[in-house]
């Protein structure tokens, strides 16, 4: 999906909720590895004041790191206040781990400074690319799944993890194109990158559903083929259906991963099957375009929380290739 725009300067007439003093991150209530196995929400600018004022009961929050790479200002100060009360995860959208030209050292340094300042519980990025010939294209673009691309991805992950001094999570992408010269399936590419670099996985269930539809593969086979013991976070989000006419004039659909709606029932179903294998895991509700009022977002997160709570009562069997785990009744949980 394109990276959402979150750069507006608020009008000076708005009521000031966030005022100094800045809060030192070292006083934060939560330790570094404290993202709970609950539902979290993506923290977006329109909700920050409300989150600070009302302190909603949500397990944790995730930001897009690039929205906070400013030298200073009210946004960073607000983030430090949020960090005092919530476990925080930093999700990158601009590092471009799949770029053949390697990583931007300045950008790595800016990210490191942000991580040092707010000490996130998790840091993650995408298995995709955004930068070519120095230009940032503001989208999470697909890689060909070749040995060459895998070697480049692993070199870049190694570079990032050595600068950050800690493990990253890498997220499976959603995509609309596949390449004729790919040499392996996406799950093998993901699994091999994790194995070679020691990074963890961020499993985006909506992305699996979207890509499975767009490239006609089986979502459950994808999940079964991954080393699930490396999954430390799950994402769920909404998507929409776009219709194209093929050469015979017949309607064909592509799922567009816009993070702009409630989670599709088929994605909740897949999420439930994933949880049955994985056990409870930090799960993020992402909503980036047509951002709704906070209560709508929290209600979606509450669905994930109910599914997680059910799963907590069922022994997890995180063994790939074992499908016969009891699956909770999703319909009942949704009521």
């Amino acid at each position: 999906m394109p990276v959402p725009i979150d750069s507006a300067v608020p009008a000076a007439t708005e009521r000031a909720v966030i005022e100094p003093p800045p809060y030192p991150a070292s006083h934060a209530r939560f330790g570094r590895h404290a993202i709970p196995a609950r539902a979290g929400i993506g923290l977006r600018q329109p909700h920050i004041d409300q989150v600070l004022l009302e302190a909603p009961d949500v397990g944790w929050l995730e930001i897009h790191s690039e929205n906070y790479l400013a030298p200073g200002g009210p946004r960073l100060r607000a983030l430090e206040l949020v960090r005092r009360d919530y476990p925080l995860s930093c999700h990158g959208v601009g590092l471009s781990l799949g770029s053949a030209e390697g990583l931007d050292r300045d950008h790595l340094a800016r990210l490191k400074a942000l991580f040092d300042r707010i000490e996130p519980g998790l840091i993650s990025e995408h298995v995709s690319w955004s930068v070519a010939e120095g230009v940032y294209l503001n989208d999470l673009l697909p890689l060909p799944y070749t040995e060459e691309a895998l070697a480049i991805l692993c070199r870049n992950i190694d570079h990032a993890q050595s600068v950050f001094g800690r493990q990253m999570l890498i997220e499976n992408p959603s995509s609309y194109v596949a390449f004729a010269h790919s040499e392996m399936p996406e799950w093998e590419f993901m699994a091999e990158a994790a194995r070679r670099t020691g990074c963890a996985l961020l499993l985006d269930v909506n992305n699996i559903h979207v890509s499975a539809h767009n490239h006609a593969f089986d979502a459950d086979a994808y999940v079964a083929a991954l080393p699930l013991d490396r999954v430390e976070e799950v994402h769920v989000a909404g998507h929409f259906v776009r219709t194209f006419l093929d050469v015979r004039g017949e309607a064909r659909t592509i799922l567009i991963d816009d993070h702009g709606a409630q989670v599709d029932q088929a994605v909740w179903d897949l999420f439930t099957r994933v949880l049955a294998r994985l056990g409870p895991v930090p799960t993020l509700m992402e909503w980036d375009t047509n951002v709704p009022d906070l209560p709508v977002l929290l209600a979606e997160a509450a669905i994930a929380d109910r599914l997680l709570a059910r799963q907590a009562a069922v022994p997890a069997r995180p063994v790939p290739g074992v499908p016969d785990v009891p699956v909770p009744d999703v319909q009942e949980v949704m009521r």
Partner: peptide, 21 residues
């Protein structure tokens, strides 16, 4: 030229990214 088509043409698939960017 690098993209697999399938049910939807490569041009239509690429245009999704172009519009996004």
């Amino acid at each position: 030229a690098l993209i697999l088509g399938g049910a939807v043409e490569p041009n239509d698939r690429f245009e999704i990214y172009r519009n996004n960017t």
